[in-house]
């Protein structure tokens, strides 16, 4: 692949992320990796479901149960932020198709900011629980909850670092066929984080407050 090819919006290929052999491999490979993440999160979800509301004998369920702990407004705010960040990364990919590098960087930047907001809320939530005595070592329930939601949070952190690095590394380079797949794959990862979150807010929070 030659980095010196100068592209214009006219000759920028329609599927820039799949225009080179490396891009194609990366595209397939990353999807395959995501299918493995599906199984990884399924294991965590299943563990959480098996352990929710269970703790040492005499654990105060009026205080430490899914019903008593979770607060829907916060979960709702987090959901909205993350869903919106999914849309903003779609916008970034839209601009990539039109060879608008500035658009890509801007929308990816917005995605990062939204991701940071989400992460802030999640940290606040965790802090709140720990303060209420529901720490990581509190019970099997607390361990399972923090591990499941925390693993998702870890994915958010990785995604943020990744996208930030991308924005930074390509500032001077502009769009080319070498970094187009990188952007595309990062946005796939970000969407996947949202996919997992859809299940988290449904299975953990919504079904949790129902008891």
């Amino acid at each position: 692949m030659d980095l010196n090819t100068k592209f214009t919006p006219q000759n920028w290929p329609e599927h820039a992320e799949q225009a080179t052999m490396e891009g194609k491999n990366k595209f397939v490979g990353f999807w395959i990796f995501l299918s493995c993440e599906v199984v990884l999160f399924a294991s965590l979800f299943a563990t959480y479901l098996a352990l929710k509301d269970s703790g040492p004998a005499g654990m105060d369920l009026a205080k430490y149960s899914t019903k008593a702990l979770y607060e829907l407004p916060l979960a709702f705010a987090m959901t909205m932020i993350l869903l919106t960040s999914s849309l903003t990364s779609v916008y970034a990919m839209y601009h990539m198709k039109n060879f608008n590098f500035k658009g890509v960087q801007t929308w990816m930047g917005i995605t990062v900011i939204l991701g940071l907001c989400f992460l802030g809320l999640e940290i606040y939530e965790f802090y709140h629980y720990v303060h209420a005595g529901f720490g990581y070592r509190h019970s099997a329930f607390s361990s399972a909850f923090f591990t499941l939601v925390g693993t998702h949070g870890l994915h958010v952190i990785i995604g943020l670092v990744w996208i930030s690095c991308l924005i930074f590394r390509n500032m001077k380079r502009g769009l080319n066929l070498y970094n187009a797949p990188k952007y595309f794959v990062a946005s796939l990862y970000w969407h996947f984080i949202d996919v997992v979150w859809v299940f988290i807010f449904t299975v953990v929070y919504l079904m949790g407050v129902l008891g």
Binding site: T47, A50, G55, Y136, S139, A140
Partner: peptide, 25 residues
Amino acid sequence: TVGLFLMLVDRMFGANFFDHTMGGN
């Protein structure tokens, strides 16, 4: 990976996934 991770935090960081006295299984 998940199983090993749960074992790791159980043994090294005080989690309770497999400890039945803490509600684990």
